[in-house]
């Protein structure tokens, strides 16, 4: 797959159809892979990588790159194409200036899950018939592939590309995922239990803002969390109110626009399950205002910029659920 991608990227660079390529490159270790922009065949040969760790959704980089002179080639997994659609719809990305090659999705791996098995000094990870062969400083280790799957991939919602100019590999289908199970489990707890759960989770937040910075729905040029007058500017939360405020507002700002790409939870250094907040909004929107998948198209109206006269009253929150 990686070879086919590099080959195609080189062709498109060579015939002048694109000026730049957005993909992934290796970091210090084989598993810490970062998004990168390539401008020449040499750079592609040297650094371009596509493997079990290329989980980053690179669509957000198009906000900047698509505004530059010349077309940009981007490799998008199915989930990332939803983000691109959403960005196109919000006029954040100039779709005409982007050439999308759809590539197959995961499952991708979570290095932390490998480390959690007590495996250290990791040099490389290979997948052989769903067994991971992990080369470490201390010899080779093995573990089942399924034990190291990234959470966002474990509850994948779709293997279908919703926008692309060409595909490498096969297109898939929309899946039946279990992504709302945990939200439902929380909903069925008592208010006290939910409160305790979230206090424990949210108090871990160090306000690094990684969740916002990575989010393709968070592309505001002036973010409320950077505004010193807001009282919630870049700083560690001073108390439990500020923790909750940050998380409620962050999730609310992306409500109806979040494609559930899972990036926020993936990058959180504190492992806070931010996806549960996003999914709570998605679940509510689906049940109260009709099924809606952000990014599925570029024309539908977002649920929060739309209404019907027959919408339920806010008191519905009081009428349902566990006290």
């Amino acid at each position: 797959m990686q070879e086919a991608m590099i080959k195609r990227a080189k062709e498109l660079l060579a015939d002048g159809s694109v000026k730049r390529v957005i993909g992934w490159k290796r970091g210090e270790f084989a598993y810490d892979i970062t998004p990168a922009v390539f401008e020449s065949a040499e750079e592609l040969d040297k650094d371009f990588v596509f493997d079990v760790f290329t989980s980053a959704n690179v669509s957000k980089y198009l906000v900047k790159e698509s505004k530059k002179e010349g077309k940009v080639l981007v490799f998008l997994k199915p989930c990332d194409t939803y983000s691109l659609n959403q960005l196109t719809k919000e006029h954040r990305v100039d779709r005409d200036n982007v050439y999308v090659i759809g590539i197959p999705g995961g499952p991708k791996l979570d290095i932390e899950k490998i480390r959690a098995k007590g495996i250290t000094g990791i040099l490389s990870v290979r997948n052989e018939n769903f067994t991971l062969k992990i080369e470490t400083l201390y010899g080779e280790e093995t573990m089942p592939f399924s034990d190291a799957i990234l959470d966002k991939c474990a509850s994948c919602k779709s293997k279908k590309h919703v926008t692309y100019d060409e595909l490498i590999g096969e297109d898939g289908d929309i899946l039946d995922s279990d992504r709302f199970d945990m939200v439902e489990k929380l909903e069925n707890m008592t208010a006290q239990e939910r409160y305790d759960f979230w206090r424990e989770q949210l108090s871990k937040c160090i306000r690094c803002n990684a969740c916002r910075n990575v989010c393709p729905a968070c592309t505001c040029e002036k973010c409320v969390f950077d505004d010193p007058a807001s009282g919630v500017e870049n700083k560690a939360a001073a108390d439990s109110f500020e923790e909750k405020m940050f998380h409620i507002i962050r999730a609310f700002h992306v409500a109806g626009r979040c494609t559930d790409c899972g990036e926020c939870s993936r990058v959180c250094p504190q492992n806070i399950p931010l996806h549960l907040l996003n999914r709570k909004f998605i679940k509510d929107i689906n049940s109260l205002y009709g099924e809606y998948q952000a990014g599925a198209d570029t024309t539908s109206r977002a649920p929060l910029t739309d209404y019907t006269a027959e919408d339920c009253e806010s008191s519905i929150v009081h009428e349902r659920g566990v006290e």
């Binding site: 929380l186 909903e187 208010a191 006290q192 239990e193 939910r194 409160y195 305790d196 759960f197 979230w198 206090r199 909750k244 409620i248 999730a251 609310f252 409500a255 907040l277 709570k280 909004f281 509510d284 929107i285 109260l288 205002y289 649920p303 929060l304 910029t305 739309d306 209404y307 919408d311 339920c312 009253e313 806010s314 519905i316 929150v317 659920g321």
Partner: peptide, 17 residues
């Protein structure tokens, strides 16, 4: 618009306990 916004906000507050 208020109605949708507040419904979702209140539901989120409830979700947080």
């Amino acid at each position: 618009f208020t109605r949708r916004r507040m419904t979702l906000l209140f539901s989120m507050l409830d979700f947080l306990g």
